[in-house]
Write a protein that binds this DNA or RNA. Structure first.
Lengths: 247, 247
DNA sequence: CGACATTTTGAGTCAGCTCAATCAGTGTGG
DNA sequence: CCACACTGATTGAGCTGACTCAAAATGTCG
């Protein structure tokens, strides 16, 4: 994916349609509705907040390009990354029904983001039951991913957590066509991966090396390659059902 | 709350209305709609599954009385409790839009549960935008609680996590009128609290004792009493905004 | 070639874990 | 009213996975 300036609005919305279709089938009519959403596109540098905890917004944010995350900070300054969002995701869909952000939304890489007014989203959901269904499913799958992460952080070993994380990321990237199921970009530093998994940087590094030495994955220059998918899944107890993807 | 057999269906639904009103204001009309929902009531013993992972249901489950939880098991047999549900909650509202359960729903105490057909829920949401809004908010707050738990499990110390947990529980019980904000029933054993917080039983016991010795809480016979609310909140970094309660 | 960000490694520490008793509360049957 | 059986709460004694601190190695890029 390249920088997005200059693309037609419709083109930007195609990622959204593609993403929704990974979980809900859409008719031509419904696709048209979505592609007609108004969008104001903005480019962010890496490590900027898109929306901060405590804010109240009147628009939803569509990831067009780049990697975005939701996170919270705790008193001692540590961070917990709550979720990762790839193109096609609307990480703050909830803002449609819950005024105040209880966490922040920020970029992990430079990113292109489109803002869609709440009113416009409400209109398309009112216009089509299936579209509102698709948004419901998106929001509920988001929650399902939180649950799976909770299990990982609460009850799985560091190694298992990392393996699970890699499986999930590749699977999600594959669903939207950004991975062949074996390899994809993973533009995160080790401290960031650590913050997502509730680990320390140093420990993450050491366990990552073990995965590499066990020939389960190859990680270099912001790119993962899964060498042994079955082995990695088993280690991470990864079962993609919680992602509720179609087919 | 007593055993519920023999009560009128409407009376059972009052808990739902009360709960929804803690997050969304409802008109008389909307209340009537909700009170008209068909309900088939069933009593469960403690430690029974209401719905199991992998199932597909055609109804939602309303907690009428008792304490219910959602949980997942991991390969080594350990359990992570994902959420607790008190009267008025619909812990599997998501089943309306996501076919397959990716976790189980079970009782922690004897409990009275009402089943509402999906079709009936869809009808009331179609009949009133505000009611559908209320359900959206319920589902999204559910996700907000997951996020807060993730932060706790991933980044807070055991003591802090326990303190946070107690604050949250009392706050939620107060919202539906089952606590005065200081004391309430907490019908969970220490192993169960441990499973909710991603801790071991022994460690939970020791940290709980510290909280008691620090005169922050009193815990005995399935009942908590908060002795020093400010102290407990500070220790647990508890800020109730994520619960998105009204007023 | 610096300057900076990121990864890697080593060493020592500790929060939280496991194992193994012991104690306490409740209920059952005689 | 007591012995027995359970379940749950407590305690003590190590153990260890994950953490912190600190430094060195490696990569990236203007």
């Amino acid at each position: 994916m390249e920088l997005a300036r200059g693309m037609a609005t419709q083109e930007h919305l195609e990622g959204l349609v593609l993403k929704l279709e990974t979980v809900t089938p859409l008719s031509e009519e419904e696709r048209r509705l979505l592609l007609g959403l108004p969008l104001s596109v903005r480019r962010f540098e890496a490590y900027r907040d898109i929306v901060s905890e405590g804010e109240r917004t009147k628009q939803c944010c569509l990831v067009i390009e780049g990697l975005v995350c939701r996170y919270k900070l705790v008193a001692n300054g540590e961070r917990q990354i709550l979720s990762l969002h790839i193109p096609g995701d609307i990480p703050d869909l909830h803002s449609l029904h819950i005024e105040e952000m209880d966490h922040s939304l920020g970029t992990l890489t430079a990113a292109t983001v489109g803002f869609i007014p709440h009113e416009a989203v409400r209109n398309v959901t009112r216009a089509s039951y299936r579209v509102s269904e698709a948004f419901w499913r998106e929001a509920l799958i988001d929650a399902a991913i939180f649950r799976e992460w909770m299990v990982g952080i609460g009850r799985r070993s560091a190694t298992s957590r990392i393996a699970h994380f890699l499986c999930e990321f590749v699977t999600k990237m594959k669903a939207i066509g950004l991975s062949d199921g074996v390899t994809c970009d993973l533009p995160m530093t080790q401290p960031e991966i650590a913050d997502a998994l509730g680990l320390s940087t140093v420990h993450t590094n050491k366990k990552l090396r073990e995965l590499r030495q066990a020939k389960l994955v190859r990680i270099r220059a912001n790119r993962v390659t899964v060498m042994d998918w079955d082995g990695l899944c088993e280690l991470g107890e990864f079962d993609p059902r919680y992602l509720h993807l179609r087919k």
